[in-house]
């Protein structure tokens, strides 16, 4: 039964672009799937190790600008540009991670905010490279396709990315490595005294989590074709990954995806219903406050608490083991 319903859901996700009446809804679908992939990727670090990063948009932006610049300035073929820039960002994240994970809790959050602010400054200040606040234009690698077909293509590319990230999270969460990350989340000194090399674990989680976000950024550059530093390097953008994961449930494989399915369409709806006012920021802010105060474990944790004793768990509880 579970398998059948899962397969139906996957089929529905694949067929979504053909089920909706217009290209705008396909576009909204691309955005939603992109957010879902990013939130799930954020959750490799945030959910498993408990380190909350508000600065993951830095990796999105670097991935986007890296790919965009390689394609636009050097004329590289897009898959190569995407691969090289993603690898570069992951390496960069590992280096930043070595410094960042030396501090815990709220100090770590400060470091991540500082990271994205610094990147934003650099992208705006280094005009000769990035074009500054004048958006960087990235030529579409699929010039033959019209706008709607491009949305369709990227919808499936982002869906593939989402599948890859979900698979990665699931594999990590049920590995000994994932177990070590959870131990870090629960009590870092204790984990260390049991022989878990906590620093290395955290750096790897940080870099892995950045890698998939950078991939999303690269795809975004190719899809959207225009990069504005204020958007891609914004703390708000990074916070949306956190909000989605928290709302859906950080301890669950599908939590961030669920959060994205709620928050991203809601954001688009606000934009249409209320126009270009700033009230959507207030809505996001209030939602974040409410989630933190009343359901910090997220939607799935609530549902899970009700029926967790009926199943016979092995090593993991469903809360941490995913589907």
């Amino acid at each position: 039964m579970r398998i059948v319903s899962s397969l139906l859901l996957v089929a529905a996700a694949l067929a979504y672009p053909w089920l909706v009446p217009n290209y705008y809804l396909v576009y909204a679908g691309v955005l939603t799937v992109m957010y879902a992939a990013m939130a799930t990727s954020w959750n490799i670090l945030g959910g498993l190790s408990g380190y909350v990063s508000l600065g993951h948009s830095a990796f999105f932006g670097l991935g986007a600008y890296g790919t965009g610049l390689l394609v636009a300035r050097l004329g590289w073929p897009w898959p190569l540009a995407l691969g090289v820039s993603t690898a570069g960002v992951a390496l960069f994240a590992a280096l930043v991670g070595v410094a960042a994970v030396r501090v815990r809790g709220a100090s770590f959050v400060i470091v991540t905010i500082a990271l994205v602010s610094a990147m934003n400054l650099l992208a705006q200040g280094w005009r000769s490279l990035t074009g500054g606040s004048v958006a960087l234009q990235v030529p579409s690698p699929f010039a033959g396709l019209h706008r709607g077909q491009t949305h369709l293509l990227f919808y499936h590319l982002f869906l593939a990315l989402l599948a890859a990230v979900l698979l990665a999270w699931w594999l990590i969460s049920r590995s000994r490595y994932g177990s070590g990350l959870r131990a870090i989340r629960e009590d870092e000194d204790k984990a260390e005294s049991l022989g878990v090399p906590t620093a290395a674990y955290k750096v790897v989680a940080f870099a892995l989590s950045a890698l998939f976000v950078a991939l999303a950024g690269g795809l975004y550059a190719l899809w959207f074709g225009s990069l504005d530093p204020i958007f891609v390097f914004s703390v708000v953008f990074g916070a949306s990954m956190v909000l989605m994961s928290l709302l859906g449930g950080r301890r669950h494989l599908l939590g961030p995806l669920l959060g994205a399915l709620i928050v991203a369409p809601a954001g688009e709806y606000f934009l249409i219903a209320l126009g270009e006012t700033q009230i959507h920021l207030t809505a996001t802010g209030v939602l974040l406050v409410l989630v933190v105060l009343f359901m910090p474990e997220g939607i799935l944790a609530r549902r899970w608490r009700r029926d967790h004793n009926r199943r016979a768990p092995q090593v993991l509880r469903r809360s941490d083991g995913g589907a």
Binding site: G50, T282, V289
Partner: peptide
């Protein structure tokens, strides 16, 4: 009313939400 009793990590996220709320209201 809202901040007391939260652990440091959650309080960062909460005050982040407050910042967005205030910014949105000012913008509106």
């Amino acid at each position: 009313v809202i901040i007391r009793g939260l652990d440091p990590m959650m309080s960062v996220l909460l005050t982040f939400g407050l910042a967005l709320t205030v910014e949105g209201l000012l913008g509106t």
